[in-house]
Nucleic acid binder design. Structure first.
Length: 884
RNA sequence: GCCGACGUGGCGGAAUGGUAGACGCAGCGGACUUAAAAUCCGCUGGGAGCAAUCCCGUGCGGGUUCGAGUCCCGCCGUCGGUACCA
C-alpha cells in the first residue's frame, strides 16, 4: 500500500505488541497447583473449533469465530475470570496423505509446514491464546491418549439396566464367553458394506462419498470387516441430555433428527412357518397391510422365493448390491421391486399377503422388513399403485368417517365417496374414493376390534393385543447407525490392536503410542487392504500375531482435544485429575466448555461424536460432567464480495494476510465483527474494511497528530481535565453498552457505540485524557494492538493515568448516575401517529406530561372536533392521545 | 417433500410492543489545498410543496393492540440442511 493511505503505523506497533505478549506470556494461564494459580477466581473455558491446517492457509472465515472468542476471552479476563483459551491443530487427514502420494514426501513434513503457516497467520492477528497448551492431533504424545481412549471403549460395554458404560472385566467376572463379550464391546469388529474408493485406497464415510466422486474418483460398495463404535447404545442419552445445554434450538433439533428416534412396534408375520418380524410406527394400521416387503439383502429372501420367481429375484438383488445407499435413493424417482412368489400371514386376521423385495426397504433400518399399508403410507401407496396391489383404508380422517356403516354404502359402481369391495380371500372392506393416501392420525375403520378408536388409542390397544398373543412388542428404533470407525489410510492413528488366531486383542497401555511405520511409498494398492499392510515387518509380530492395519478416522482426534488443552503436557494421564476438576466441572452445569464457537458444518457429526466419547469417559469416571460443551454458538458463513460462496474457481477468495498487510490486524478483527451478527451469513466488503480502518484512524488521531516534519506527536487537544457532563455520559453509556453487547455476543452494535463515542470525543476542543483512557479500555478486546500502543503513549505523557497494560486491568465500571438525563424528549402521538415532540424534566409525573401533551398546538389541531377517548402515557417515552 | 434460518434505504445492517433506518459503506454539497488524495463539517427512504408541513413506507394478505419491523393466522420468495428411516 502507499505510504499515504497508512494513517497510523500499525505495521510497527502490531508486531511489537505481539512479541510483547509472547515473551511475557500475557495470556498463559496456570493450572491448579502451578505457580500463580488463583483458585478463588472463577474459571471460564472459551473454545474455538480447531482448524485443519490446509495448504491454502487461513481464510477470512477462520478469524470470524476466533475474533469473537478472543473478545470474550479478553473481556472475561478483565472481569476477573481465569480464562482458558487454547488453540491447536486437527492435523490428520486425507489431503496431507494425497500430497505424500504425489510427492513421496512424508505427510508429517507437509503437515508441519502447514501448521507453521497457520500458527504464523494466527499470531499475526493478535489472538490471546495460551500457546503453551497448543495441541496437535498427529503428535505422538497426543496419539498416545487418543489410542488410550479407544482402549477404554474397547474395554467397555453398555449396560442397558443402568444406561451406562461399564468395564468389560465385569462381564468376564460373570463368566461370559469371549464371543459374548466381543459382541458387547463399545468398539467391535463387524462385516459392513462400505464405500470403497480404489483411487484413494480407502473406504469413505457416507458423507465423504459425494465430495470425492465430484473430484473424479470412483466409489463402490463392498462388504468389509470394519471397526465400529457402538454409538447407538447412547442414542437415547444423546437426545435427552441435550436439554441442559445452551445450544441453538436448531442445532439441537438437527441432532435429534439425525438420531431419529421413532416409537412403534415389532410385529411377527409368518412365511410358511418361518417367523418374519417387521417394524412399524403404525401398528394401528395392521389390518390395512396388503403386502410385505423385504429388503433385497434380507436373509430370508432365498428361502421364500419360489422357483418361478428365482431368476427375477436374483437379477434384482444383483442390481441393488451394486448400488450405494446414495444411488439407491437418488435413482428413486420410480419405485422398483420384484415379487418373491411367497406369501406371509398377517397375524391379526390370518390374511395371506404377497411378499415382495424392493430397494425402498433398507436392511440397515428396523428389521429390514415392512408390512406395507398403501392407504396410509406414501411410499407403500406409490409402490402399490405401480404394481396394482390393493389398497385398504383402515384410518378414517374424521370421526364421522369412522362411523360409516358397512351396510350403508354401495358397490364400486356407485357414485358415492365410499364403496364396499373385496380383498383377497377375506371379507369386504370399505373403500374411500376421495382419499389418495392419508398418513395422519384419525380413527380406525375396517379394523375389527380397533374400529372407532382414535389413532393413539388404537396403537396402544393393538400393541397390548400383540403382546398378549405373543405376536409383537412395543419398540423404539433409531435412525442413528453405529459409527464406522476404521479407515485404510496411512495418515491416521493406528489401532492399538493385534490379531491372533482370528481374534483381536488390545496391546498393553505401556506400548502406547503405537506409531505408524515409515513407508517406501504411499500409493494405495488398489485392493481394500489398508496401506499399513505394506509394512510387513511392522505388521508381523511373529508367532502368528499380526497388527491391525486399519487407522482411525480424522474425527478421533477432534473428539477429545478440548480435554487435552486443560492439561496439554501431562505425561501420566490424558488429563490430570485436578485440572479436569477445575477447568471442566466448576460451572455447576452439565457441559464443561463454557463457550464453543464454530461453523454449522459440524452441527451433527463432530458434536455428536465428541458428546459420545465424553459420555463414555464420564461413565467410566474419567471426566466429571456428562456433556462436553455447555454453550454453543455457530458463526455464519462469510461470502465473497459477489455474494457467492468463496472459492478458488470463482476467484472471490479474500486472504487475511493481504488484509493485514494493507489495513492491519486490528482493522481485520474489527471488520469481521462489524459486518453483522456473528451467526449470520454475510458478504465481504473491502469498502467495509476501509470504514472500520478509518474509525481506528480516528481513534489514533484522538491521541496523535503529525507535526511539521511529519512525525507522530501527541495531539495538542489532549488535556488532563474533568470531562463535561455530555462527554461523561457518552463514555459511560459506551462502557455499559460494550460490556452488555460482549456478553450477548452482539459485537457489531458494540463497535457502533464506540464509533459514536469516538465521534463525540473528536468534536471536543479539549479532550479529557481520562475519557480517552476509558474508551481505549473497552476497545481493547476488539483492537488490542492499537489501544495498548495509544494507552502506553498517553500514560507516558499524563502521570495521572494508569501506566499498566490494558490487557491486565479490570473492566471499568460505568456510573449509572452519569447516564441520567435532566430532560427527556417525549413523543406526542394522536391515534398512534407522531405529531409533536417535547422535552420534559426526567421523572415528571404522568399527569403533568399528559397535561403538557394536550396543551400542544399540534396535538390540539389533530384532535379538533374529535372526542378524546383515552390518553396513554408511557413514562419517559411517549404520550398517545386516542380520539375519534 | 420435510426441517431450519432469513426477508427493513442504492449496499452491510440498528431498533425491551412505543420517534423505523443507529453505526458504517456508497452518493451529494461545503471547508482546507494551486490541484488532488487524506482529513473535517453538513445532507442523504419514496412522493407532494417555495415553505411550515403532509401523505406513503420494514416481502404479500388478514388479525390482536391506544400503538406492530417486532405478537398471531395464511401465503410468496431467498438461503442452508436433509431425504424412501417404515
Amino acid at each position: 500500500m502507499s505510504e499515504r493511505r497508512k494513517q497510523f503505523p500499525f505495521d510497527e506497533f502490531e508486531p511489537k505488541w505481539q512479541a510483547h505478549w509472547e515473551t511475557r506470556k500475557t495470556f498463559s494461564v496456570p493450572n491448579p497447583g502451578e505457580p500463580g494459580f488463583d483458585a478463588t477466581k472463577p474459571k471460564f473455558y472459551v473454545l474455538d473449533m480447531f482448524p485443519y491446517p490446509s495448504g491454502a492457509g487461513l481464510h477470512v472465515g477462520h478469524p470470524e469465530g476466533y475474533t469473537a472468542t478472543d473478545i470474550v476471552t479478553r473481556h472475561r479476563r478483565m472481569k476477573g475470570d481465569n480464562v482458558l483459551h487454547p488453540m491447536g491443530w486437527d492435523a490428520f487427514g486425507l489431503p496431507a496423505e494425497e500430497h505424500a502420494r504425489k510427492t513421496g514426501e512424508h505427510p508429517r513434513i507437509n503437515t508441519e509446514n502447514n501448521v507453521n503457516n497457520f500458527r504464523r497467520q494466527l499470531k499475526r492477528l493478535g489472538f490471546a491464546y495460551d500457546w503453551d497448551r497448543e495441541v496437535n492431533t498427529t503428535d505422538p504424545a497426543y496419539v498416545r491418549w487418543t489410542q488410550w481412549i479407544f482402549l477404554q471403549l474397547y474395554h467397555s460395554y453398555f449396560d442397558e439396566a443402568t444406561q451406562k458404560a461399564r468395564p468389560i472385566a465385569e462381564l468376564e467376572a460373570q463368566g461370559l464367553s469371549r464371543d459374548e463379550i466381543d459382541a458387547k464391546r463399545l468398539a467391535y469388529v463387524a462385516e459392513a458394506p462400505v464405500n470403497w474408493c480404489p483411487d484413494l485406497g480407502t473406504v469413505l464415510a457416507n458423507e465423504e462419498v459425494e465430495e470425492w466422486r465430484a473430484k473424479g474418483h470412483a466409489v463402490e460398495r463392498r462388504p468389509l470387516k470394519q471397526w465400529m463404535l457402538r454409538i447407538t447404545a447412547y442414542a437415547q442419552r444423546l437426545i435427552d441430555e441435550l436439554d441442559g445445554l445452551d445450544w441453538p434450538e436448531g442445532i439441537k433439533l438437527l441432532q435429534k433428527n439425525w438420531i431419529g428416534r421413532s416409537e412403534g412396534a415389532e410385529v411377527d408375520f409368518t412365511i410358511g412357518g418361518e417367523k418374519v418380524t417387521v417394524f412399524t410406527t403404525r401398528p394401528d394400521t395392521l389390518f390395512g397391510a396388503t403386502y410385505m416387503v423385504l429388503a433385497p439383502e434380507h436373509p430370508l429372501v432365498d428361502r421364500i422365493t419360489t422357483p418361478e420367481q428365482k431368476d427375477a429375484v436374483e437379477a434384482y438383488r444383483r442390481t441393488c448390491a451394486a448400488k450405494s445407499d446414495l444411488e439407491r435413493t437418488e435413482l428413486a424417482k420410480e419405485k422398483t421391486g420384484v415379487f418373491t412368489g411367497g406369501t406371509a400371514t398377517n397375524p391379526v386376521n390370518g390374511e395371506e399377503i404377497p411378499v415382495w423385495i424392493a430397494d425402498y426397504v433398507m436392511m440397515s433400518y428396523g428389521t429390514g422388513a415392512i408390512m406395507a399399508v398403501p392407504a396410509h403410507d406414501e411410499r407403500d401407496y406409490e409402490f402399490a399403485t405401480q404394481f396394482g396391489i390393493p389398497i385398504i383404508y383402515v384410518v378414517g380422517q374424521t370421526h364421522e368417517q369412522a362411523d360409516i356403516k358397512f351396510e350403508a354404502v354401495g358397490s364400486p359402481e356407485d357414485k358415492g365417496p365410499w364403496y364396499a369391495g373385496k380383498f383377497g380371500s377375506f371379507g369386504k372392506y370399505l373403500y374411500y374414493r376421495e382419499t389418495e393416501c392419508f398418513s395422519g392420525d384419525g380413527y380406525a375403520i375396517n379394523s375389527g376390534f380397533l374400529d372407532g378408536l382414535p389413532t393413539p388409542e388404537a396403537k396402544t390397544k393393538i400393541i397390548a393385543w400383540l403382546a398378549e398373543n405373543g405376536l409383537g412388542t412395543k419398540t423404539v428404533n433409531y435412525k442413528l447407525r453405529d459409527w464406522l470407525f476404521s479407515r485404510q489410510r496411512y495418515w491416521g492413528e493406528p489401532f492399538p490392536i493385534v490379531w491372533k488366531d482370528g481374534r483381536h486383542e488390545a496391546i498393553p497401555e505401556s506400548e502406547l503410542p503405537l506409531l505408524a511405520p515409515e513407508l517406501e511409498d504411499y500409493k494405495p494398492s488398489g485392493s481394500p487392504e489398508p496401506i499399513l499392510s505394506k509394512a510387513a515387518a511392522w505388521v508381523d509380530l511373529g508367532n502368528g500375531v499380526t497388527r491391525e492395519t486399519n487407522t482411525m478416522p480424522q474425527w478421533a482426534g477432534s473428539c477429545w482435544y478440548y480435554l487435552r488443552y486443560c492439561d496439554a503436557r501431562n505425561g501420566e494421564r490424558f488429563i490430570g485429575r485436578e485440572a479436569e476438576d477445575y477447568w471442566l466441572a466448576k460451572n455447576g452445569k452439565p457441559g464443561s466448555v463454557d463457550l464453543y464457537v464454530g461453523g454449522t458444518e459440524h452441527a451433527v457429526l463432530h458434536l455428536l461424536y465428541a458428546r459420545f466419547w465424553h459420555k463414555v469417559l464420564f461413565d467410566l469416571g474419567h471426566v466429571s460432567t456428562p456433556e462436553p460443551f455447555q454453550k454453543l454458538v455457530n458463526q455464519g458463513l462469510i461470502l465473497g464480495e459477489d455474494g457467492q460462496k468463496m472459492s478458488k474457481s470463482r476467484g472471490n477468495v479474500v486472504n487475511p494476510d493481504d488484509v493485514v498487510d494493507e489495513y492491519g490486524a486490528d482493522a481485520l478483527r474489527l471488520y469481521e465483527m462489524f459486518m453483522g451478527p456473528l451467526e449470520q451469513v454475510k458478504p465481504w466488503s473491502m469498502k467495509g474494511v476501509e470504514g472500520v480502518f478509518r474509525f481506528l484512524a480516528r481513534v489514533w488521531r484522538l491521541v496523535m497528530e503529525t507535526n511539521q516534519e511529519g512525525d507522530w506527536v501527541l495531539n495538542a487537544k489532549l488535556a488532563d481535565i474533568e470531562p463535561d457532563k455530555a462527554t461523561d455520559k457518552v463514555v459511560h453509556a459506551t462502557i455499559k453498552k460494550v460490556g452488555e453487547d460482549i456478553e450477548s455476543m452482539s459485537f457489531n452494535t458494540a463497535i457502533s457505540q464506540m464509533m459514536v463515542c469516538t465521534n463525540e470525543l473528536t468534536k471536543l476542543e479539549r479532550v479529557p485524557v481520562s475519557s480517552i483512557a476509558l474508551l481505549l479500555q473497552v476497545l481493547n478486546p476488539f483492537a488490542p494492538h492499537l489501544t495498548e500502543e495509544l494507552n502506553a503513549t498517553l500514560a507516558a505523557a499524563f502521570p495521572s493515568l494508569d501506566a499498566g497494560e490494558l490487557a491486565n486491568r479490570p473492566w471499568p465500571a460505568y456510573d449509572p448516575a452519569k447516564l441520567i438525563e435532566d430532560e427527556i424528549e417525549i413523543v406526542l402521538q394522536v391515534n398512534g401517529k407522531v405529531r409533536d415532540k417535547l422535552f420534559v424534566a426526567n421523572g415528571a409525573a404522568n399527569e403533568e406530561v399528559e397535561k403538557l401533551a394536550l396543551a400542544s398546538e399540534k396535538v390540539k389541531s389533530f384532535i379538533e372536533g374529535l372526542t378524546v377517548r383515552k390518553v396513554i402515557v408511557v413514562p419517559g417515552r411517549l404520550v398517545n392521545v386516542v380520539a375519534n
